[in-house]
Computed example of a mutant assay.
Amino acid sequence: MVIPLRQQLSEGTGPGARAARLRHVTWEAGSVTAAQAREAALAFLTEVGDGRTPLPDRTRDDVQLVVSELVTNALRHAPGACGLRVEMPPDGHAVRVAVWDTSADVPVAQPRNGGRVGGHGLEIVEAVSRALTVESLTAGRGKEVTAEIEIPRAARPAPAS
C-alpha cells in the first residue's frame, strides 16, 4: 500500500468563508501509480459533492482522465517525487488538476497521428480541458502542469457554506 507523504483537504472556515476546496497529495519517487492518483482525485470529488449538487459523470470522468495522463507523464519523464493538487475554486465553475514533478523539461503535445502508439497524453488533456498551463518551479526544480476542466453551467455545485 502506498501512503502519501502529505494529504490535505482544505475548505473555507468561519462565517461566510468561500475558499477554494482542494486536496494536495505528494508521493516519493516510484511510490504511486496512475490508478492510485485517480483514486485520490475521485475521493476529493466525492467529498466535494457530499451534500451539494453532485458533479456530472462526464466531469468526474474527465478529471480522472486528466489525472491519469498527467501523472503517467510525470512517472515516465521525471525522476523523483511528484505531486497532485485537485481544486475547486469558490465559484464552482471548474475543477483544476495540477501535477508537479522534478523535471524542468516542458511537455510538448505531439502532432496528431492516429498510427502512433503512445504520445497522445497532452493531446487528450487539451481536448477535455478549457485551459492547460505549464509553470516552472523555483530554481529549476521541476514544473507544474495544470489543466482546468469546466463544469457545465447546469451542473455546477452550490458554493460551500
Rank of each mutant, 00 (worst) to 15 (best):
A41N: 12
H24T: 05
A139V: 06
Q64N: 11
R156C: 04
Q7K: 08
D101W: 08
G83W: 05
L75Q: 13
V48T: 02
G114C: 07
H24K: 08
D61H: 13
L84Y: 08
P54G: 13
E87R: 12
A81W: 14
N73W: 02
L5A: 10
P15S: 13
V48D: 06
G142V: 00
G115S: 09
E126A: 15
A20M: 03
R52Y: 07
A158R: 07
R130I: 12
H24A: 05
R76Y: 10
R112G: 14
T146D: 01
A139E: 15
P56C: 06
E39T: 07
E135Y: 09
S161R: 11
G16L: 01
L75W: 03
L132M: 01
H77I: 01
E144T: 12
S136M: 09
H93E: 15
G114K: 07
G83F: 06
E150Q: 09
A160L: 04
S103G: 06
T138K: 12
Q36H: 10
I124Q: 10
G140A: 05
H77R: 04
V128R: 03
A29Q: 15
G119Y: 06
A41R: 11
V106H: 13
P54W: 11
L45K: 04
C82H: 15
H77K: 04
V125Q: 08
R156F: 06
M1N: 09
R18M: 00
T72A: 13
E39L: 01
H77V: 02
A34R: 03
V99D: 11
N73M: 09
E144N: 08
S10M: 05
T59E: 01
A131L: 01
R38M: 05
R18H: 07
V71R: 03
G121H: 01
L75R: 09
E87D: 11
D62V: 00
C82Y: 11
D61K: 04
A34F: 04
S10E: 14
R52Q: 05
A78D: 05
E69I: 03
T46A: 10
P111T: 06
V71P: 00
V99R: 11
T133K: 03
I3Q: 12
Q64T: 11
V97H: 07
V134S: 15
L55N: 07
V145R: 03
V2S: 15
A35C: 05
V125C: 09
A109T: 13
R21G: 00
E148M: 01
A131T: 02
K143N: 13
G30S: 05
T102K: 14
G118H: 09
S129Q: 07
A81I: 00
V99G: 11
S31L: 04
A17S: 15
P159Q: 08
E123K: 13
